[in-house]
């Protein structure tokens, strides 16, 4: 068991290193660099000398290997340096954007779990009835709708409906206030994006809950319980749901890790100053240090969530043996 854990933990190292090398390489393969973007984006002419000075200032004139080793050394020390675009420490840049993204991810998860587990269970129990069909269509709708489109439409609807009802149009705030400062303002900003993201998330989890439930319901012990005449509700609570939840928990964990990356588009729609939008900015500005740090952050979240889910899974389900 401990050997297995150790092995799994050690195996994350090549993944992290590989991702580091990949992002380092990809960023440098993109034509142009941050100095060009900084000096030329206004369309005015600039001195080639300024370009050289800028390269020197941010250190991209040094040999590529030196830059790479410095990056790796930084990862080891958890020090990602300063953003080439703003001159601020990368950690400051990311921490400034983290609260809103995490808040939306958590809210979306809550929305998703709150919808998915009850609906998925009902759908499985009432398999092939109209309820099941309705739930399944609702779920596939969530998977089939582009979330940014849902976002655009929902903002518009809110504006039009409030305008029609009260005469003055209302929209969610466009700047973030921490929840402990003004919870109402904060939540009124976060709820719409959470629902648009959460719908897809709920849809995926709902389908998983349904099929997991269906499988468990066919397991012998559930059949036995049924044969013994136990009432359905008891069976569901005591036996089926508990076991069906395992794969659902896994999925929720993995989806959560994906969520940070998945917020990219939603944050654009709602003018949220989150990690996803920072990501797009960093890449478009060709800010090497910031992009590298963000990639390592998402990769690490993904890798460690997976690790945690795997270990948890094994611990919860004694049928799985650690090889």
């Amino acid at each position: 068991m401990y050997q297995y854990i150790l092995k799994r933990v050690l195996l994350t190292i090549p993944t992290l290193l590989g991702a580091a090398a990949l992002v380092f390489l990809l960023m440098r393969l993109i034509p142009g660099d941050i100095c060009l973007v900084r000096l030329g984006s206004g369309g005015a002419s600039f001195d080639p000398k300024a370009l050289i000075a800028c390269h020197k200032e941010i250190g991209v004139d040094r040999p590529i290997l030196v830059q790479f080793l410095e990056f790796i050394w930084g990862i080891i020390r958890f020090d990602f340096g300063t953003s080439m675009w703003s001159g601020k420490p990368v950690s400051t840049e990311i921490l400034a954007r983290l609260p809103i993204s995490v808040e939306i991810a958590l809210l979306a998860t809550t929305v998703a779990v709150g919808i998915a587990i009850p609906l998925g269970t009902i759908s499985a129990l009432k398999q092939n009835t109209w309820i099941d069909v309705a739930v399944r269509i609702f779920a596939i709708g969530g998977i089939a709708t582009p979330s940014f489109w849902l976002g655009i439409v929902s903002v518009l609807l809110v504006l039009d409906i409030t305008s029609w009802v009260s005469g003055t149009p209302w929209m969610p705030p466009i700047d973030y206030v921490p929840i402990w400062k003004d919870p109402i303002r904060n939540l009124s900003m976060a709820i719409l994006p959470a629902i648009t993201v959460g719908y897809r998330y709920a849809a995926v989890s709902m389908r998983m809950t349904r099929s997991a439930m269906l499988e468990v319901m066919r397991e012998d012990y559930v059949r036995t319980a049924r044969a013994k005449g136990l009432i359905n509700k008891l069976i569901i609570n005591r036996h089926a749901l508990k076991n069906a939840l395992l794969p659902v928990v896994t999925l929720i964990g993995i989806e959560f890790a994906f969520l940070i990356g998945g917020l990219v588009v939603t944050e654009q729609v709602f003018n949220l100053n989150g990690v996803g939008r920072l990501f797009v900015q960093a890449v478009q500005n060709q800010d090497y240090t910031l992009t590298q740090a963000l990639v390592m952050l998402t990769v690490a979240v993904f890798v460690f969530t997976n690790l945690a889910v795997d270990l948890l899974y094994g611990w919860l389900d004694p049928r799985i043996h650690f090889a």
């Binding site: 993109i30 034509p31 142009g32 660099d33 941050i34 060009l36 973007v37 030329g40 984006s41 890449v283 478009q284 500005n285 060709q286």
Partner: peptide, 8 residues
């Protein structure tokens, strides 16, 4: 994007 546009 801007960077590749300028560079090209």
């Amino acid at each position: 994007p801007t960077g590749p546009w300028l560079e090209k």
